[in-house]
Design a protein around this nucleic acid. Structure first.
Lengths: 213, 213
DNA sequence: AATCTGACTTACCAATCGGTAAGGGGTACG
DNA sequence: CGTACCCCTTACCGATTGGTAAGTCAGATT
Protein backbone atom coordinates (compact mmCIF):
# COMPACT_ATOMS: atom_id res chain seq x y z
CA UNK A 1 0.00 0.00 0.00
CA UNK A 2 2.74 2.46 -0.77
CA UNK A 3 1.74 5.89 -2.01
CA UNK A 4 3.09 4.81 -5.36
CA UNK A 5 -0.27 3.27 -6.18
CA UNK A 6 -1.80 6.46 -7.46
CA UNK A 7 -4.15 4.60 -9.68
CA UNK A 8 -5.21 6.63 -12.67
CA UNK A 9 -8.07 6.25 -15.10
CA UNK A 10 -9.69 3.89 -12.67
CA UNK A 11 -13.18 5.20 -13.26
CA UNK A 12 -12.76 5.14 -16.99
CA UNK A 13 -11.89 1.46 -17.02
CA UNK A 14 -15.01 0.88 -14.93
CA UNK A 15 -17.09 2.59 -17.57
CA UNK A 16 -18.48 0.21 -20.19
CA UNK A 17 -16.87 2.20 -22.95
CA UNK A 18 -17.05 5.88 -23.73
CA UNK A 19 -16.07 7.82 -26.78
CA UNK A 20 -13.38 10.39 -26.18
CA UNK A 21 -14.82 13.87 -25.87
CA UNK A 22 -13.85 16.80 -28.00
CA UNK A 23 -13.86 20.55 -27.40
CA UNK A 24 -17.35 20.95 -28.84
CA UNK A 25 -18.88 18.26 -26.66
CA UNK A 26 -17.35 19.80 -23.55
CA UNK A 27 -18.57 23.26 -24.52
CA UNK A 28 -22.07 21.99 -25.23
CA UNK A 29 -22.34 20.39 -21.82
CA UNK A 30 -20.91 23.49 -20.21
CA UNK A 31 -23.43 25.79 -21.89
CA UNK A 32 -26.25 23.55 -20.85
CA UNK A 33 -25.31 24.34 -17.26
CA UNK A 34 -24.35 27.95 -17.94
CA UNK A 35 -27.80 28.61 -19.36
CA UNK A 36 -29.61 26.91 -16.51
CA UNK A 37 -27.61 28.30 -13.60
CA UNK A 38 -25.72 31.24 -15.01
CA UNK A 39 -22.06 31.39 -16.01
CA UNK A 40 -20.69 32.58 -12.70
CA UNK A 41 -22.85 30.22 -10.69
CA UNK A 42 -21.55 27.20 -12.60
CA UNK A 43 -18.28 25.65 -11.50
CA UNK A 44 -16.02 23.60 -13.73
CA UNK A 45 -16.44 20.74 -11.29
CA UNK A 46 -20.13 20.71 -12.11
CA UNK A 47 -19.37 20.70 -15.81
CA UNK A 48 -16.91 17.88 -15.33
CA UNK A 49 -19.26 15.70 -13.34
CA UNK A 50 -22.04 16.31 -15.86
CA UNK A 51 -19.68 14.87 -18.44
CA UNK A 52 -18.50 12.09 -16.17
CA UNK A 53 -14.89 13.25 -16.27
CA UNK A 54 -12.58 15.07 -13.90
CA UNK A 55 -12.21 18.83 -13.87
CA UNK A 56 -8.62 18.59 -15.07
CA UNK A 57 -9.79 16.77 -18.18
CA UNK A 58 -11.61 19.93 -19.21
CA UNK A 59 -8.24 21.62 -19.45
CA UNK A 60 -7.15 19.10 -22.02
CA UNK A 61 -9.87 20.42 -24.36
CA UNK A 62 -10.00 24.09 -23.38
CA UNK A 63 -7.55 26.60 -22.00
CA UNK A 64 -9.89 27.62 -19.19
CA UNK A 65 -13.39 28.60 -18.25
CA UNK A 66 -13.36 31.77 -20.31
CA UNK A 67 -12.08 29.85 -23.33
CA UNK A 68 -15.19 27.69 -23.13
CA UNK A 69 -17.31 30.81 -22.97
CA UNK A 70 -15.63 32.25 -26.02
CA UNK A 71 -15.82 28.96 -27.89
CA UNK A 72 -19.60 28.79 -27.55
CA UNK A 73 -20.45 32.45 -27.89
CA UNK A 74 -18.23 32.90 -30.91
CA UNK A 75 -20.25 30.25 -32.71
CA UNK A 76 -23.57 31.79 -31.71
CA UNK A 77 -22.53 35.31 -32.69
CA UNK A 78 -21.15 34.06 -35.99
CA UNK A 79 -24.48 32.46 -36.85
CA UNK A 80 -26.32 35.66 -36.01
CA UNK A 81 -23.88 37.84 -37.90
CA UNK A 82 -24.02 35.79 -41.07
CA UNK A 83 -27.79 35.93 -40.89
CA UNK A 84 -27.60 39.69 -40.52
CA UNK A 85 -25.48 39.90 -43.65
CA UNK A 86 -28.16 38.05 -45.56
CA UNK A 87 -30.81 40.43 -44.28
CA UNK A 88 -28.80 43.55 -45.00
CA UNK A 89 -27.63 42.57 -48.46
CA UNK A 90 -30.98 41.36 -49.68
CA UNK A 91 -32.03 43.12 -52.84
CA UNK A 92 -32.44 46.75 -51.90
CA UNK A 93 -35.52 46.61 -54.08
CA UNK A 94 -36.84 44.58 -51.19
CA UNK A 95 -38.68 46.94 -48.86
CA UNK A 96 -36.77 47.53 -45.59
CA UNK A 97 -39.64 46.18 -43.51
CA UNK A 98 -39.49 42.90 -45.42
CA UNK A 99 -35.80 42.65 -44.67
CA UNK A 100 -36.49 43.44 -41.05
CA UNK A 101 -39.17 40.76 -40.89
CA UNK A 102 -36.65 38.33 -42.33
CA UNK A 103 -34.20 39.34 -39.63
CA UNK A 104 -36.77 38.80 -36.90
CA UNK A 105 -37.82 35.44 -38.27
CA UNK A 106 -34.31 34.09 -38.74
CA UNK A 107 -33.20 35.63 -35.46
CA UNK A 108 -35.96 33.77 -33.67
CA UNK A 109 -35.08 30.54 -35.39
CA UNK A 110 -31.40 30.86 -34.61
CA UNK A 111 -32.12 31.87 -31.03
CA UNK A 112 -34.30 28.84 -30.52
CA UNK A 113 -31.85 26.51 -32.28
CA UNK A 114 -28.92 27.77 -30.21
CA UNK A 115 -30.99 28.34 -27.11
CA UNK A 116 -28.35 27.63 -24.48
CA UNK A 117 -25.59 29.66 -26.08
CA UNK A 118 -27.79 32.60 -26.99
CA UNK A 119 -29.22 32.71 -23.51
CA UNK A 120 -25.75 33.04 -22.08
CA UNK A 121 -24.87 35.62 -24.73
CA UNK A 122 -27.78 37.75 -23.63
CA UNK A 123 -26.74 37.72 -20.01
CA UNK A 124 -23.21 38.98 -20.53
CA UNK A 125 -22.31 41.85 -18.28
CA UNK A 126 -18.86 42.77 -19.53
CA UNK A 127 -17.02 41.48 -16.48
CA UNK A 128 -13.98 40.46 -18.51
CA UNK A 129 -12.25 41.41 -21.73
CA UNK A 130 -13.81 38.48 -23.54
CA UNK A 131 -17.29 39.45 -22.41
CA UNK A 132 -16.74 43.04 -23.46
CA UNK A 133 -15.64 42.04 -26.94
CA UNK A 134 -18.74 39.87 -27.33
CA UNK A 135 -20.92 42.71 -26.10
CA UNK A 136 -19.37 44.95 -28.70
CA UNK A 137 -20.37 42.53 -31.45
CA UNK A 138 -23.87 42.39 -30.00
CA UNK A 139 -24.18 46.15 -30.10
CA UNK A 140 -23.02 46.20 -33.71
CA UNK A 141 -25.77 43.72 -34.47
CA UNK A 142 -28.37 45.93 -32.82
CA UNK A 143 -27.08 48.97 -34.67
CA UNK A 144 -27.38 47.20 -38.03
CA UNK A 145 -30.95 46.23 -37.23
CA UNK A 146 -31.71 49.82 -36.29
CA UNK A 147 -30.24 50.98 -39.59
CA UNK A 148 -32.80 48.93 -41.49
CA UNK A 149 -35.59 50.57 -39.54
CA UNK A 150 -34.07 53.98 -40.08
CA UNK A 151 -34.21 53.30 -43.78
CA UNK A 152 -37.86 52.31 -43.37
CA UNK A 153 -38.55 55.72 -41.86
CA UNK A 154 -36.84 57.39 -44.82
CA UNK A 155 -38.85 55.42 -47.34
CA UNK A 156 -42.01 56.22 -45.43
CA UNK A 157 -42.77 52.60 -44.57
CA UNK A 158 -42.51 53.49 -40.91
CA UNK A 159 -44.31 56.53 -39.57
CA UNK A 160 -42.29 59.72 -39.56
CA UNK A 161 -41.06 60.62 -36.12
CA UNK A 162 -40.56 57.00 -35.13
CA UNK A 163 -37.40 56.25 -33.21
CA UNK A 164 -35.68 53.44 -35.14
CA UNK A 165 -33.17 52.71 -32.40
CA UNK A 166 -35.83 52.20 -29.77
CA UNK A 167 -38.04 50.19 -32.09
CA UNK A 168 -35.14 47.94 -33.07
CA UNK A 169 -34.28 47.39 -29.42
CA UNK A 170 -37.87 46.47 -28.63
CA UNK A 171 -38.09 44.11 -31.59
CA UNK A 172 -34.84 42.35 -30.82
CA UNK A 173 -35.90 42.30 -27.21
CA UNK A 174 -38.85 40.14 -28.16
CA UNK A 175 -36.49 37.59 -29.68
CA UNK A 176 -34.26 37.76 -26.64
CA UNK A 177 -37.07 37.16 -24.20
CA UNK A 178 -38.19 34.22 -26.31
CA UNK A 179 -34.98 32.39 -25.61
CA UNK A 180 -35.48 32.78 -21.89
CA UNK A 181 -38.85 31.14 -21.46
CA UNK A 182 -39.24 28.78 -24.39
CA UNK A 183 -38.87 25.09 -23.64
CA UNK A 184 -38.98 22.64 -26.54
CA UNK A 185 -41.61 20.59 -24.73
CA UNK A 186 -44.08 23.44 -25.02
CA UNK A 187 -47.36 23.13 -26.83
CA UNK A 188 -46.17 25.34 -29.66
CA UNK A 189 -43.31 24.11 -31.87
CA UNK A 190 -40.32 26.34 -32.49
CA UNK A 191 -41.10 26.78 -36.19
CA UNK A 192 -44.54 28.19 -35.52
CA UNK A 193 -43.26 30.34 -32.71
CA UNK A 194 -40.94 32.23 -35.05
CA UNK A 195 -43.97 33.16 -37.17
CA UNK A 196 -45.89 34.31 -34.10
CA UNK A 197 -42.97 36.51 -33.18
CA UNK A 198 -42.80 38.06 -36.64
CA UNK A 199 -46.52 38.86 -36.58
CA UNK A 200 -46.22 40.24 -33.06
CA UNK A 201 -43.38 42.55 -34.02
CA UNK A 202 -45.08 43.73 -37.19
CA UNK A 203 -48.63 44.08 -35.86
CA UNK A 204 -48.64 43.70 -32.09
CA UNK A 205 -51.35 41.73 -30.36
CA UNK A 206 -53.63 40.13 -32.98
CA UNK A 207 -56.68 42.27 -32.33
CA UNK A 208 -59.89 41.88 -34.22
CA UNK A 209 -61.05 44.83 -36.26
CA UNK A 210 -57.57 46.00 -37.24
CA UNK A 211 -56.12 45.77 -40.70
CA UNK A 212 -53.63 43.00 -41.42
CA UNK A 213 -51.35 42.85 -44.37
CA UNK B 1 2.71 49.06 20.55
CA UNK B 2 0.94 46.13 22.16
CA UNK B 3 -1.51 44.16 20.09
CA UNK B 4 -4.16 45.79 22.23
CA UNK B 5 -4.25 48.74 19.87
CA UNK B 6 -6.65 47.15 17.40
CA UNK B 7 -7.92 50.54 16.44
CA UNK B 8 -11.54 50.48 15.35
CA UNK B 9 -13.64 53.01 13.52
CA UNK B 10 -10.44 54.72 12.52
CA UNK B 11 -11.50 55.44 8.95
CA UNK B 12 -14.85 56.74 10.07
CA UNK B 13 -13.27 59.39 12.30
CA UNK B 14 -11.19 60.39 9.28
CA UNK B 15 -14.34 60.95 7.29
CA UNK B 16 -15.73 64.46 7.47
CA UNK B 17 -19.04 63.14 8.79
CA UNK B 18 -21.34 60.51 7.42
CA UNK B 19 -24.88 59.62 8.29
CA UNK B 20 -25.31 56.11 9.58
CA UNK B 21 -26.59 53.81 6.88
CA UNK B 22 -29.73 51.73 7.09
CA UNK B 23 -30.78 48.45 5.50
CA UNK B 24 -32.37 50.21 2.54
CA UNK B 25 -29.33 52.26 1.73
CA UNK B 26 -27.10 49.19 1.83
CA UNK B 27 -29.52 47.26 -0.37
CA UNK B 28 -29.75 50.10 -2.88
CA UNK B 29 -25.99 50.26 -3.26
CA UNK B 30 -25.82 46.49 -3.51
CA UNK B 31 -28.42 46.34 -6.27
CA UNK B 32 -26.62 49.03 -8.18
CA UNK B 33 -23.70 46.64 -8.42
CA UNK B 34 -25.82 43.50 -8.79
CA UNK B 35 -27.51 45.00 -11.83
CA UNK B 36 -24.26 46.13 -13.43
CA UNK B 37 -22.16 43.03 -12.80
CA UNK B 38 -24.65 40.33 -11.89
CA UNK B 39 -25.46 38.97 -8.45
CA UNK B 40 -22.92 36.17 -8.40
CA UNK B 41 -20.17 38.30 -9.88
CA UNK B 42 -20.56 40.92 -7.17
CA UNK B 43 -18.77 40.36 -3.87
CA UNK B 44 -19.82 41.85 -0.59
CA UNK B 45 -16.42 43.49 -0.41
CA UNK B 46 -17.29 45.44 -3.54
CA UNK B 47 -20.59 46.48 -2.02
CA UNK B 48 -18.86 47.53 1.16
CA UNK B 49 -16.22 49.60 -0.55
CA UNK B 50 -18.85 51.26 -2.72
CA UNK B 51 -20.49 52.36 0.51
CA UNK B 52 -17.21 53.28 2.13
CA UNK B 53 -17.64 50.77 4.94
CA UNK B 54 -16.19 47.39 5.79
CA UNK B 55 -17.73 44.14 4.67
CA UNK B 56 -18.55 43.19 8.24
CA UNK B 57 -20.66 46.32 8.59
CA UNK B 58 -23.03 44.94 5.98
CA UNK B 59 -23.83 42.16 8.41
CA UNK B 60 -25.04 44.70 10.91
CA UNK B 61 -27.80 45.69 8.48
CA UNK B 62 -28.51 42.38 6.75
CA UNK B 63 -28.28 38.73 7.69
CA UNK B 64 -26.26 37.89 4.60
CA UNK B 65 -25.95 38.27 0.86
CA UNK B 66 -29.17 36.45 0.14
CA UNK B 67 -31.02 38.58 2.69
CA UNK B 68 -30.04 41.64 0.67
CA UNK B 69 -31.32 39.96 -2.45
CA UNK B 70 -34.63 39.20 -0.82
CA UNK B 71 -34.89 42.67 0.67
CA UNK B 72 -34.66 44.34 -2.72
CA UNK B 73 -36.58 41.84 -4.80
CA UNK B 74 -39.41 41.63 -2.31
CA UNK B 75 -39.96 45.35 -2.74
CA UNK B 76 -39.86 45.18 -6.52
CA UNK B 77 -42.21 42.20 -6.70
CA UNK B 78 -44.59 43.86 -4.26
CA UNK B 79 -44.81 46.94 -6.47
CA UNK B 80 -45.50 44.80 -9.52
CA UNK B 81 -48.07 42.66 -7.73
CA UNK B 82 -50.04 45.58 -6.38
CA UNK B 83 -50.09 47.04 -9.87
CA UNK B 84 -51.37 43.74 -11.18
CA UNK B 85 -54.20 43.81 -8.68
CA UNK B 86 -55.21 47.22 -9.98
CA UNK B 87 -55.20 45.95 -13.53
CA UNK B 88 -57.12 42.79 -12.74
CA UNK B 89 -59.77 44.40 -10.56
CA UNK B 90 -60.47 47.30 -12.84
CA UNK B 91 -64.12 47.52 -13.74
CA UNK B 92 -64.87 44.38 -15.69
CA UNK B 93 -66.89 46.67 -17.91
CA UNK B 94 -63.44 47.79 -19.00
CA UNK B 95 -62.44 45.76 -22.05
CA UNK B 96 -59.68 43.25 -21.27
CA UNK B 97 -57.33 44.79 -23.78
CA UNK B 98 -57.64 48.14 -22.00
CA UNK B 99 -56.71 46.45 -18.75
CA UNK B 100 -53.82 44.73 -20.48
CA UNK B 101 -52.62 48.03 -21.91
CA UNK B 102 -52.77 49.47 -18.41
CA UNK B 103 -50.67 46.55 -17.18
CA UNK B 104 -48.08 47.10 -19.88
CA UNK B 105 -47.91 50.84 -19.26
CA UNK B 106 -47.60 50.59 -15.50
CA UNK B 107 -45.29 47.63 -15.80
CA UNK B 108 -42.96 49.67 -17.98
CA UNK B 109 -43.08 52.58 -15.57
CA UNK B 110 -42.38 50.41 -12.56
CA UNK B 111 -39.63 48.57 -14.37
CA UNK B 112 -37.93 51.81 -15.30
CA UNK B 113 -38.43 53.29 -11.84
CA UNK B 114 -36.98 50.23 -10.12
CA UNK B 115 -34.53 49.49 -12.89
CA UNK B 116 -31.73 47.95 -10.82
CA UNK B 117 -33.95 45.68 -8.76
CA UNK B 118 -36.12 44.57 -11.65
CA UNK B 119 -33.08 43.80 -13.75
CA UNK B 120 -31.80 41.47 -11.05
CA UNK B 121 -35.27 39.99 -10.65
CA UNK B 122 -35.32 39.09 -14.32
CA UNK B 123 -31.99 37.31 -14.16
CA UNK B 124 -32.88 34.94 -11.35
CA UNK B 125 -32.06 31.35 -12.12
CA UNK B 126 -33.45 29.56 -9.07
CA UNK B 127 -30.07 28.68 -7.61
CA UNK B 128 -31.34 28.96 -4.04
CA UNK B 129 -34.59 28.62 -2.15
CA UNK B 130 -35.00 32.38 -2.06
CA UNK B 131 -34.55 32.68 -5.79
CA UNK B 132 -37.01 29.89 -6.42
CA UNK B 133 -39.69 31.55 -4.29
CA UNK B 134 -39.22 34.81 -6.17
CA UNK B 135 -39.43 32.97 -9.47
CA UNK B 136 -42.69 31.44 -8.35
CA UNK B 137 -44.13 34.88 -7.74
CA UNK B 138 -42.92 35.97 -11.15
CA UNK B 139 -44.64 33.06 -12.81
CA UNK B 140 -47.87 33.88 -10.99
CA UNK B 141 -47.59 37.38 -12.38
CA UNK B 142 -47.16 36.08 -15.91
CA UNK B 143 -50.10 33.72 -15.48
CA UNK B 144 -52.36 36.56 -14.35
CA UNK B 145 -51.37 38.62 -17.38
CA UNK B 146 -52.09 35.65 -19.61
CA UNK B 147 -55.51 35.30 -17.99
CA UNK B 148 -56.43 38.80 -19.10
CA UNK B 149 -55.50 37.94 -22.66
CA UNK B 150 -57.40 34.68 -22.46
CA UNK B 151 -60.45 36.71 -21.53
CA UNK B 152 -59.79 38.94 -24.52
CA UNK B 153 -59.94 35.89 -26.76
CA UNK B 154 -63.26 34.90 -25.19
CA UNK B 155 -64.77 38.32 -25.73
CA UNK B 156 -63.50 38.33 -29.28
CA UNK B 157 -61.19 41.30 -28.78
CA UNK B 158 -58.29 39.07 -29.70
CA UNK B 159 -58.45 36.87 -32.74
CA UNK B 160 -59.75 33.37 -32.11
CA UNK B 161 -56.99 30.80 -32.11
CA UNK B 162 -54.50 33.18 -30.53
CA UNK B 163 -52.31 31.69 -27.82
CA UNK B 164 -52.78 33.97 -24.80
CA UNK B 165 -49.90 32.46 -22.85
CA UNK B 166 -47.40 33.04 -25.63
CA UNK B 167 -48.72 36.53 -26.35
CA UNK B 168 -48.51 37.48 -22.68
CA UNK B 169 -44.94 36.20 -22.50
CA UNK B 170 -43.98 38.20 -25.57
CA UNK B 171 -45.62 41.35 -24.22
CA UNK B 172 -44.06 41.08 -20.80
CA UNK B 173 -40.83 40.22 -22.54
CA UNK B 174 -40.86 43.63 -24.18
CA UNK B 175 -41.03 45.25 -20.76
CA UNK B 176 -38.28 43.03 -19.48
CA UNK B 177 -35.93 43.82 -22.31
CA UNK B 178 -36.60 47.49 -21.77
CA UNK B 179 -35.07 47.33 -18.34
CA UNK B 180 -31.90 45.84 -19.75
CA UNK B 181 -30.92 48.48 -22.26
CA UNK B 182 -32.57 51.68 -21.09
CA UNK B 183 -30.28 54.27 -19.54
CA UNK B 184 -31.84 57.41 -18.07
CA UNK B 185 -29.43 59.56 -20.04
CA UNK B 186 -31.01 58.40 -23.27
CA UNK B 187 -32.62 60.76 -25.71
CA UNK B 188 -36.08 59.50 -24.88
CA UNK B 189 -37.45 60.11 -21.36
CA UNK B 190 -38.86 57.20 -19.37
CA UNK B 191 -42.40 58.56 -19.43
CA UNK B 192 -42.54 58.64 -23.21
CA UNK B 193 -40.89 55.28 -23.46
CA UNK B 194 -43.72 53.60 -21.57
CA UNK B 195 -46.14 54.93 -24.18
CA UNK B 196 -43.96 53.70 -27.00
CA UNK B 197 -43.97 50.27 -25.41
CA UNK B 198 -47.76 50.23 -25.09
CA UNK B 199 -48.18 51.18 -28.75
CA UNK B 200 -45.59 48.59 -29.77
CA UNK B 201 -47.35 45.82 -27.87
CA UNK B 202 -50.78 46.79 -29.14
CA UNK B 203 -49.87 47.54 -32.77
CA UNK B 204 -46.31 46.44 -33.46
CA UNK B 205 -43.99 48.59 -35.52
CA UNK B 206 -45.75 51.86 -36.41
CA UNK B 207 -46.20 51.18 -40.10
CA UNK B 208 -47.88 53.63 -42.41
CA UNK B 209 -51.07 52.50 -44.08
CA UNK B 210 -52.29 50.42 -41.14
CA UNK B 211 -55.22 51.30 -38.99
CA UNK B 212 -54.56 52.78 -35.56
CA UNK B 213 -57.08 53.07 -32.80
C1' DA C 1 -19.78 60.15 35.88
C1' DA C 2 -21.24 55.62 34.58
C1' DT C 3 -23.55 52.85 31.44
C1' DC C 4 -25.75 51.38 27.43
C1' DT C 5 -26.55 51.00 22.60
C1' DG C 6 -26.09 51.85 17.66
C1' DA C 7 -22.86 51.53 14.13
C1' DC C 8 -19.23 50.27 12.96
C1' DT C 9 -13.88 48.25 12.78
C1' DT C 10 -9.85 44.69 12.18
C1' DA C 11 -8.66 40.03 12.01
C1' DC C 12 -9.73 35.82 10.98
C1' DC C 13 -11.83 31.26 9.08
C1' DA C 14 -13.50 27.37 6.25
C1' DA C 15 -15.17 26.42 1.80
C1' DT C 16 -14.97 26.82 -2.85
C1' DC C 17 -13.08 28.25 -7.05
C1' DG C 18 -10.15 28.29 -11.34
C1' DG C 19 -6.07 26.42 -12.53
C1' DT C 20 -1.58 23.41 -12.48
C1' DA C 21 1.76 19.41 -11.97
C1' DA C 22 2.76 15.03 -12.82
C1' DG C 23 1.79 10.74 -14.04
C1' DG C 24 -0.70 6.49 -16.08
C1' DG C 25 -3.64 3.37 -19.05
C1' DG C 26 -4.77 2.22 -23.81
C1' DT C 27 -3.99 1.97 -28.62
C1' DA C 28 -1.44 2.57 -32.98
C1' DC C 29 2.70 2.35 -35.18
C1' DG C 30 7.59 1.26 -35.92
C1' DC D 1 8.56 -5.35 -28.14
C1' DG D 2 9.25 -0.43 -27.42
C1' DT D 3 7.71 4.04 -27.68
C1' DA D 4 4.88 7.81 -28.73
C1' DC D 5 0.71 10.06 -28.34
C1' DC D 6 -4.03 10.79 -26.94
C1' DC D 7 -7.09 11.34 -23.21
C1' DC D 8 -7.60 11.30 -19.03
C1' DT D 9 -6.56 10.76 -13.65
C1' DT D 10 -5.26 12.13 -8.59
C1' DA D 11 -3.37 15.54 -5.84
C1' DC D 12 -2.48 19.85 -4.98
C1' DC D 13 -2.25 25.27 -4.90
C1' DG D 14 -3.21 30.17 -4.16
C1' DA D 15 -6.86 33.43 -4.38
C1' DT D 16 -11.32 34.78 -3.38
C1' DT D 17 -15.63 34.38 -1.14
C1' DG D 18 -19.44 34.58 2.33
C1' DG D 19 -19.50 34.73 6.98
C1' DT D 20 -17.91 35.25 12.11
C1' DA D 21 -15.59 36.89 16.53
C1' DA D 22 -14.39 40.28 19.21
C1' DG D 23 -13.32 44.79 20.13
C1' DT D 24 -14.25 50.08 19.99
C1' DC D 25 -15.78 54.62 19.86
C1' DA D 26 -19.38 58.46 19.80
C1' DG D 27 -23.42 59.93 21.53
C1' DA D 28 -27.81 59.25 24.11
C1' DT D 29 -29.66 57.86 28.67
C1' DT D 30 -29.67 57.55 33.50
Amino acid sequence: MSSKARGAASSRSQDPIRKPLDADAVATAAFELFSRQGYNATSLDQVASALGISKAAIYYHHAGKEAILRHGLDAAMAALESMLQEAVFQSTANPPLDRFAYLVRRGSQIGLAHKATVEVLLRLKGNSEIERSLLKRRRAFDAAAAAILREAVTTGDLQAGSNPTVLASLSIGVINTLVEWYRPDRAIPAGELAEVVVRFVMSGLPRTGTERI
